[in-house]
Amino acid sequence: MLDTFLEALSLLGRLDEHVLAIVWLSFKVGLSTVTLATLIGLPLGALVAVASFPGRSIATVVLNGMMGLPSVVVGVIIYLILSRSGPLGGFGLLYSPPAMILAQTVLVVPLMAALTRQIIEDAWREYANEFRSMRFSLRHTIVSLLYDCRFSLVVAVLAGMGRSLSEVGAVMIVGGNIEGFTRTMTTAIALETAKGDLPLSLALGMVLLSVVLVLNAGAYNLRQWAMRKYG
């Protein structure tokens, strides 16, 4: 156990180009996923928080439930959709980064929307009178609430980034873990573990962990700064 750990540490000292390419791809996929999921999930969560429509409570329950969606299930569904014999097969997207981004977006949007809904619902209680008196449209209400909660929403975005970076089931299935093309940190870890190369997978795991820690530390500092600046 200790030997494995020490060997992993020594591997970290000589991160080669090959490993850095994997880390970089993870980032690209993660950032693209989070960008897309932010554009969809935040307004969606805010909409469910603010709009009154029949079935709103059902939408809330569905959103919360989908947070726990197993990534493998999403992977298989997206696989079947993108497969050449599936409905979107004509685009030839399977086993490519866009397929991974798509699958992860499906996975991450409910998570980000559900967190956003909670945050926005609290803010909405505070602002409802003001915004109504200013005759804000639904769009203005959502935009202003998202803007007002921007620093709290970092948590939602970060949760999405964390899930995207650490997720393995969906990217493995739709990406195919192709070396130099769709191999991310998590699928590489799965592969190295399968090959019995535990030090290397541990080293990759440490890279993943430090990335997530750095992101969280950054977000924490951002919130501290925002709290001082904006109250």
Partner: peptide, 21 residues
Amino acid sequence: FQHPVLLRSSVFHNAGLGLQP
């Protein structure tokens, strides 16, 4: 309102908020 709620943002942004719609 008796307890006006202001956005977490600049004075200027808040002052112009009612003009958005």
